[in-house]
Design a protein around this nucleic acid. Structure first.
Length: 646
RNA sequence: GAUCCACUAGCUCAGUUGGCAGAGCACCUGACUUUUAAUCAGGGUGUCCCGCGUUCGAAUCGCGGGUGGAUCACCA
């Protein structure tokens, strides 16, 4: 206030109100409307793109009339003449507006135009005195008024957060961003072309899975209302694509989005684009050849060379790429020879010696992979295949015939980062089931990323899957490499961002709303319960019943029975427990998969439909308007299998 | 999760030892009939990320918080 008063003598004209730029633009918008011009005009039939108009220009035969449309990116007024730079997707073209040519009425429109506005221009193409090919405007059409000022023309938009949050602005003002995304599109097309040329069939498989499988990652969970079941957003494409191999589609691929509930950093986004392909009768060797050939050819096609520069480092993608086993690589870069390590204990001792953090149950193979991460990965700058992975970290890969602790798998590394992952697919259903069971144990041990048992997938394998090579490539990583992008966010048009405006508050509002709404939906007014028992049971008798938390590993309807469900349960012991329960009229088997329930485990086996049922699952029963209602007791998933109830 | 850094005009950024909030571009007023980051004359448009504190006085110092970035850890 004081400041304004001080300045009063300087600002003599009281009417000259200082307004923000956005208000100025709104005023111009109103001014256009007052003239009867729609500031957000209709379709405009351009005859040329800017680059076409430039390409067709001929100094021998100038003055060919064109109609072009685009965004004004620069405006240079010079009295009764004005120059505009008009940008469209193909490039830019200068517009020359002269009062004699367009008339006073049109020329005065220029005052209402700003950098950022979208216009159409009609007029002949010519060359200015300074030699620039331009359109001499005869007609200006306002197609859309821009209400926001654009970032500064010389420095552009630097604020990375704004660039990602408002990619549209980034694309308008930073031309190299557009180039990157055009290149991304070309790369993905080139991959498709290559694979189609090799006889692969592109397919689409579900993105919402009942059981998320094919990778070690935490999934996102969503919900289907009509079925009243939770579904998982897929973390990989693998298991569905291999079902297709079983079905006889011998070369398939999918380029699709997968979702992993993990942190965000320069190489991770919660959703990303994954290429997976499977080729029957091939193996990981075949996949290696395919990988190096495909990547090299894509680079050649999109960049015109196999010699690329990433972060100032020259990388040669020309096949064949280096090949090393994981053991050889660890020996080379750390000096530790795992061929000489006899057992898990020796490996653990080595890990401690080299300050590698491990847990007591870590095996030799797992520790080898930790050595690899610690000593080798960063050195693999030029394209390198690392082969022969430990079985512990590869539950879907085929075992080495001469070393049951190894699998036929490789990962390709470029610039110290994983680019591709492939293996000879495990097609032995018995082995696969055992591996899933091992993964289930890991899950129970708290590894939320371990695979879940996919019964139908094993069932598919039981029909017979040919020996198969499978390959996965993170397309975002590939695009990063080929566009020299240092962050995955630079190759994703709209990378995941935390919402603005205090996420916490919104979260609170939602959770309050939920807690308020939920109880209101449940109506207990019609509930009738069984009278409480009068007879006492002594504590000794009670404590003889062994109540345990159990996890539903598998659940299926018993054939020929309307009521019975057969549960395969993890009760914390190594052996699975089978319990049959007559609750099919209340639950479909798939809704119970993975749930944690309560069972009595020390009842004598009882035959039902010829199957031994070992114990009872506990349900809560009541009556409502004469009908019996039942709820299977389901408890918090944090409760481990086998936990005893007291 | 830990550490470090950043946050000032629409954009890019200065801001000294705690002492009236600054520049360039953009924008506004005016001049200019072939400009090229047009030029010339004039105009500063602000929640200095937010809150609390110290102080006569805070963009600046302290504490707490937010957002982003980097590094590390976790995860694979």
């Amino acid at each position: 206030m004081a400041k304004e008063q001080k300045n009063t003598p300087a600002t003599e004209e009281q009417e000259q109100v200082q307004v923000k730029e956005i208000e100025v633009r709104r005023q111009k918008l109103d001014a256009l409307r007052e003239r009867g011009i729609d500031p957000f005009g209709a379709a405009f039939n351009a005859s040329h793109t800017t680059s076409q108009a430039l390409a067709e220009f001929d100094d021998e035969q100038p003055e060919k009339t064109v109609k072009i449309a685009g965004r004004i990116m620069s405006k240079r007024g010079q009295g009764k003449v004005s120059f505009l730079d008009l940008h469209d997707q193909s490039g830019k073209l200068q517009i020359y507006v002269k009062i004699d040519e367009v008339g006073e009425e049109q020329f005065s429109l220029l005052k209402l135009l700003d950098v950022g506005d979208i216009i159409g221009v009609a007029g002949p193409v010519f060359r200015t005195q300074r030699g620039e090919i331009s359109v001499r405007a005869q007609q200006l059409t306002i197609l859309s008024k821009s209400l926001h000022p654009l970032p500064e023309k010389w420095h552009g938009l630097k604020d990375v957060e704004l660039r990602y949050r408002q990619r549209y602005v980034d694309l308008i003002v930073n031309p190299e961003v557009k180039d990157t995304f055009i290149k991304r599109s070309l790369i993905i097309s080139a991959v498709r072309d290559y694979l189609n040329g090799q006889g692969f069939l592109e397919v689409e498989t579900p993105t919402m899975h009942n059981i998320p499988g094919g990778a070690a990652a935490r999934p996102f969970i969503t919900h289907h209302n009509a079925l009243n079941i939770d579904l998982y957003m897929r973390i990989a494409l693998e298991l569905y694509l291999k079902r297709l191999i079983v079905g006889g589609l011998e070369k398939v691929y999918e380029i699709g989005r997968v979702y992993r509930n993990e942190g965000l950093d320069y190489k991770h986004n919660p959703e990303f684009t994954l290429l997976e392909l499977y080729q029957a009768y091939s193996d990981y060797q075949g996949m290696m050849e395919l990988t190096e050939n495909m990547v090299a050819q894509v680079a050649q096609k999109v960049l015109g060379t196999m010699q690329i520069t990433y972060e100032d480092t020259q990388i040669d993608l020309t096949p064949p790429w280096n090949r090393m086993t994981m053991q050889e690589a660890v020996l080379k870069f750390s000096g530790v020879d795992f061929a000489q390590v006899p057992d898990d204990a020796a490996a653990q001792a080595l890990a401690k010696e080299h300050h590698i953090v491990i847990e007591p149950h870590f095996t030799k193979g797992k520790i080898l992979s930790l050595f690899f991460d610690a000593y080798v990965e960063e050195h693999l700058i030029q394209p390198t295949f690392i082969t022969d992975y430990p079985i512990e970290i590869s539950p879907l890969a085929k075992k080495h015939t001469d070393d049951p602790n190894m699998v036929y798998r490789f990962e390709a590394f470029v610039y110290g980062r994983e680019l591709a992952n492939a293996f000879s697919e495990l097609n032995d259903p018995i082995d696969q089931r055992e591996r899933f069971m091992q993964q289930m144990l890991e899950r129970e041990r708290g590894d939320e990323e371990a695979n879940m048992l996919d019964e139908d997938y094993v069932n598919a394998l039981e029909y017979g899957m040919p020996p198969t090579g499978g390959l996965g490539i993170g397309m975002d990583r590939l695009v990063m490499l080929l566009t020299n992008a240092s962050s995955i966010r630079d190759v994703l048009l709209f990378p995941a961002m935390r919402p603005l405006n205090s996420a916490k508050e919104e979260h609170n509002v939602i959770s309050e709303a939920v807690t308020e709404a939920e109880p209101a939906k449940i109506d207990f007014s019609k509930v009738e319960i069984e009278p409480l028992f009068k007879d006492f049971v002594d504590f000794e008798t009670f404590s003889k019943s062994d109540f345990r938390a159990v996890k539903v590993l598998a659940c299926e309807a018993v054939p020929k029975s309307k009521k019975l469900l057969k549960f395969t349960l993890n009760d914390g012991t190594a052996e699975n427990r089978i319990i049959l329960s007559g609750i099919h009229e209340y639950y479909e088997p798939e809704e119970l998969l993975g749930k944690t329930c309560i069972a009595i485990t020390n009842l004598p086996p009882r035959k039902m439909m010829g199957i031994d049922s070992c114990g009872m699952l506990i349900s809560a029963v009541h009556n409502e308007e004469g009908a019996e209602k039942l709820h299977l007791l389901m408890v918090d998933n944090h409760i481990p299998a086998g936990a005893k109830l007291y």
